[in-house]
Computed example of a mutant assay.
Amino acid sequence: MEPLSTRPVVTELRLSAFAAHRGGAFPLGPVTLFAGPSGSGKSSVLRAYEALAALAAGAELAEVFPEPAGCVPEGARGDAQGRRGFRIGCTVSGPAGPVRLDLAVQAEPELRIVGERLTCGDRVLLSTALLDPGRDHVQAAWHTGGVAAVTRAPFPGDLLGTALLPLRVAGRTDGQRQVLAAAEQTVVALRSVFPCDPQPPRMRAPVRPGDGRLLPGCDNLAAVLHRTRHECARRHTRLTSMARAGCAGTVRGVGTEELADGLVRAVIHRSESDGVDCGASTPLGRLGDGELRFLAMALVLLTGPGVLSVDQAAEVPGALQSLTVVADGFDRCLDPGQAAGLAALAASICAEGHLRLVGAVSGDGAFARELEGVAVVDLCRDGTGRESTATTAGGVRRGP
């Protein structure tokens, strides 16, 4: 197994001013679950992470923030020109060391990036600033380390500058190579994100066999099972064990059936102790929402990067990448036993280093607090909307 230090991973997410959050800084481990009452900002944390991931993959600002006013901190007032915005960022650890990315976005009256900074240690590797509001670009300056200390050029105001650096920097000097290493590390870590929210109503119907890459809503769960059940017997056995723990009755196996019209459906095989013939099977479409979500999340965790529908950096070897599953409503529709079983599976899989999980859970996340390798972060809000405490499995950290 590759040492974790060789895999670029996001180790901190910052919501300096975003939605209900002000001054939020959240360490991220292999498995991090955000807990708290409704309205505490759990979904906002995950939305900021997904936004950074999309920008790192080259998405335009308007595509990432279709309703930017909703990202502005509550109660924030505009300046004399009516301008309001928000700020988010992250830290990415990897071979280049800890690299910080901080982004300032103007939401009103016009959506645009007004400032971006990429730093490693005390050195600013990239900085951008909006010098002329009448133009659609920002002025960028990046570290050169040659005869000229920095190189300056205009960057688009609707794209992440860090993602553009590999196309702009030649890599001829030590300084340029440091900039490239930091930018590539940040982009690789951020774009390797799989947002997952299983949708039981869309998982019940038979589907056509496809390429076997699982969609974020797990609509094509049957097609993925059809592909993977013979590819790795060990992981399929673990999936069957999860089904036994999380589904009603006595489960003998999980599989698929090919139908006369060419479609496939996923099925649960049950044993005779249920009063059913040993060869009988139950279509997954008959299961409850909780059982379907439980099986879908277990499949996501067990199949890993090669099966999930995510566009990872093709030029980087898989051994050097770590995919992050972002799951809002990780325990939605699940009973405490199902939720605890999934969290334990996540801890086991993510300890291997090729997969990470960032999720939001209802209540206080008590089902996962005693699990080694799982951090539960409580978002408790006071009257100003700031995080008053952040509690993890390792203790309590006072908020900002």
Rank of each mutant, 00 (worst) to 15 (best):
R123W: 07
L125P: 00
L126I: 05
L131M: 12
D132T: 08
P133N: 12
P133C: 02
A140C: 15
A140Q: 15
A140L: 14
A141R: 15
A141C: 14
A141D: 10
G145F: 01
G146K: 09
A149G: 11
T151L: 11
R152C: 01
A153P: 11
A153E: 15
P154S: 05
P154K: 03
P156A: 10
L160A: 10
A163F: 10
L165C: 06
P166G: 04
L167P: 02
V169Y: 07
G171C: 11
R172I: 00
R172C: 01
Q176T: 04
R177K: 15
R177W: 01
Q178T: 13
L180G: 01
A182W: 05
A182Y: 07
Q185Y: 03
T186A: 14
A189W: 02
C196W: 07
P198I: 04
R202V: 07
R202T: 11
A205E: 12
V207I: 06
V207S: 03
R208N: 01
R208V: 12
P209R: 08
G210T: 09
G212Y: 00
G212N: 05
G212K: 09
R213Y: 08
L215W: 08
G217T: 06
G217Y: 02
C218R: 03
N220V: 01
A222G: 10
A223L: 07
V224H: 01
L225T: 04
H226Q: 14
T228S: 06
R229D: 05
C232V: 13
C232P: 09
A233G: 13
R234V: 14
R235S: 12
R235N: 08
T237E: 15
R238E: 15
R238W: 11
M242P: 11
A243V: 08
R244T: 09
A245M: 08
A245Q: 05
G246K: 06
C247W: 00
T250K: 08
V254Y: 08
G255I: 05
A260C: 09
D261H: 07
